[in-house]
């Protein structure tokens, strides 16, 4: 099932399918290792619900919901 990283629940896990967006933001996501095939788990949401904290490629990355919306995830159906 395809799903936006932005719509993930706490503790939900999936694999990146594609990364949308353009220019700077997209490049930045790539450079930080947010590329197709990487396994991602939503670790935490900040006190006000945004930004998000994810574990990816063995480290913790924080990004906003607006940026997470570009990341399309493949999740296993529960």
């Amino acid at each position: 099932m395809l799903k936006n990283l932005e719509q993930f629940n706490l503790g939900e896990k999936g694999t990146i399918k594609t990364v949308d967006g353009e220019g700077k933001i997209r490049r930045r996501l790539f450079d930080m290792g947010v590329t197709p095939g990487a396994e991602v788990i939503l670790r935490k949401k900040a006190p006000l619900g945004d930004p998000l904290e994810v574990t990816i490629r063995g480290y913790e990355l924080t990004l906003r919901k607006t940026e997470a919306a570009y990341v399309i995830m493949e999740v296993e159906n529960a």
């Binding site: 933001i25 930045r28 930080m32 913790e60 990355l61 990004l63 607006t66 940026e67």
Partner: peptide
């Protein structure tokens, strides 16, 4: 501006 940052251990 976007906010995409590493959280160090």
């Amino acid at each position: 501006p976007p906010f995409i940052m590493e959280l160090p251990s």
